[in-house]
Design a protein around this nucleic acid. Structure first.
Lengths: 343, 343
DNA sequence: TTAAAAATTTTACGCGCGTAAAATTAATGG
DNA sequence: CCATTAATTTTACGCGCGTAAAATTTTTAA
């Protein structure tokens, strides 16, 4: 390996014996040059330590090779996990992922979009905050940058949307719970931060009605993204005030359920479905930690991989075609029941 | 708001009545221009929609306004949380955080460093993988870019290091456990991915010896970052094979403890310190979920905020001074015992 | 009021690469 | 082997901004 460090493409052109425009073509798309040329370049690349200046590259390119990924709250393992999958797919697709978390706040979400704008990404994968999102900010962003929404939808914004079929998945769970024991109450936040929560509520209500059961909602307060803490506090209150009209609790998501389980434990209520148990608790999402609660949490999976894969495919298609879609592609994936010990 | 979109600094100069070089100065550091000028610029900025091209800006600047943040595994809420704090501090400091996760893999860590190199960051905050890190890759990176290490140290690499005082924190826990019940066995991975784990092991051994107790290690297999799963599997084995020579288990970290608790639950062992309990289990780190295990996990906190704050301060100092340190600043923060129900 | 200091403006060049157009060379097929 | 087609090289310009140096204006201090 020669120590001589190459400063720019010009210099690399002279040492490699390839003209600079051809090198430029190569770095934009290695497949766009003749195989023999590519080989020459790549062997020169092994000998000399050169990489194009990323800023100069992106300055004049109408489209960069960046794909933005925005999630509402990265400290939530659900989003961390899906972001991880997406990142890898984006890299495989030959793009550079730029991962941003909105940390649960409207301002941060707007700043993330602004920040992405100044980066001129080829496309963006956006999981919006939901209720707290500034709809018009997202709308104008989608107008500027090809954007695919996932996890939760805001109106019909974005070129495509991939998420969970909440009516199906909640219906599945409610039917399971009703057929194996008492009908569940629905444990949720009164003003959820996430639109999916509203869909789950109405799915619960709908399914209960269909089954001829009387629905009951326990709606707890809370405005933050500390769902475990909210579920715990709300759970304590609900249990102590005997608000649970049944022995079965369906939580709007797994993180609330984890908090609820802690509350039940503290109150000495044994959770599970066997003999000697006082309460059945179910969640929703198959959170990475759901396997490890005590007892392990019965829940509904979201197919992380499918959502991630389809989202990335969609944005890559959009980028490649260079066009906007005339119709918005919306796919809701079915959830699968994960039967564990808690319900 | 005028609709006329400004294309470049030249154009913004003419509409704002400020010369382009002064604007350039302003965008590099708003404080560097006269207050009256700044005011003019800022009011023009409200009227016209202009933002400098980030690529053109960074092309010629010797130092960008980017600060890289690399964590070993972002799907671990511990790192997600500390990354969140660091991100905010970096933004407050007037820099742009670039968050990258190594996803537990050597190759990804190297790629992250490579990727950062091509971005020419002003500085980098690096929490290395540990045992799996390519030491020479990190070394050469530190030589090129001002780098502060946190969470775990690799030799004396980096301009500074901020982390936890493992001997102190583990000592604290061992003494607490010994003084309130049986002496603990130490539950850990045989070949931990994280150097802190080795320090914790020897801290355990040292403290036990000091207290005149016989140390015992339970070392489980596992190479991934799925610590909960590893702790669960290992816990099942240890319990079923009656490898626990005592009723008290100290886990090398909270994630292992969460898995171990699930195993204990499955085996019907009641965990806690009150009457009718079979086992005491303690962890280490005060993981965000430790409050919500059943029972709540007794553990030792790491002062996330202190580590984050000092790390960011250090890198900002380095950047500002423009010099490398002659001595490496190393601070190990003391842990605090968090007494909950599990031990 | 005036001289000195500080900030701004003018002028001018460079950064590293994208990219267009024309000229040249190489690959392909019959 | 030659004609056709495809790829590469040459040449040249532009992108948006950083930044240096000299000229000018504004501010500050005396």
């Amino acid at each position: 390996m020669s120590d001589s460090k190459i400063r720019n493409m010009e210099e690399f052109a002279s040492v490699s014996g390839i003209s600079r425009p051809t090198l430029s073509k190569y770095f934009n798309d290695p497949e766009s040059v003749r195989a023999s040329t590519r080989k020459k370049i790549e062997s020169a690349l092994e000998t000399y330590d050169y990489r194009p200046n990323i800023y100069a590259m992106n300055q004049n390119r109408r489209l960069t090779k960046n794909i933005g990924i925005v999630v509402p709250y990265l400290a939530d393992p659900f989003f961390a996990e899906i972001a991880r999958i997406i990142e890898n797919l984006v890299i495989e697709g030959g793009f550079r992922p730029i991962l941003l978390s909105s940390h649960g706040g409207t301002r941060q979400e707007i700043e993330n979009l602004d920040s992405l704008r100044s980066i001129r990404p080829a496309g963006v994968l956006l999981a919006p905050l939901g209720r707290r999102s500034d709809v018009s900010a997202i709308e104008s962003f989608c107008a500027e940058v090809p954007t695919v929404l996932f996890d939760n939808s805001i109106g019909d914004l974005g070129e495509a949307f991939f998420g969970l079929n909440n009516p199906q998945s909640v219906g599945l769970m409610v039917e399971y719970l009703c057929s194996t024991g008492e009908a569940p109450v629905f444990f949720e936040m009164r003003t959820p931060t996430n639109p999916n929560a509203y869909k789950r509520r109405s799915a619960y209500l709908g399914t209960m009605e269909k089954l001829g059961q009387t629905p009951q909602l326990i709606q707890i307060e809370g405005e933050t993204w500390d769902f475990e803490a909210i579920g715990y506090e709300g759970g304590l209150k609900a249990i102590r005030h005997r608000q649970l009209g049944t022995n079965t609790v369906l939580c709007s998501n797994d993180r609330l359920a984890i908090g609820f389980l802690a509350a039940a434990y503290e109150c000495g209520l044994r959770v599970g479905r066997g003999p000697g148990t006082a309460l059945r608790v179910a969640g929703h999402d198959d959170h990475p930690y759901a396997r490890f609660t005590c007892p392990p949490l019965t829940t509904v999976t979201q197919d992380y991989a499918a959502i991630a894969t389809r989202s990335v495919e969609a944005i890559l298609d959009l980028i490649e075609s260079g066009e906007r879609r005339d119709s918005r592609d919306t796919v809701l994936f079915a959830g699968t029941l994960i039967e564990r010990e808690s319900a």
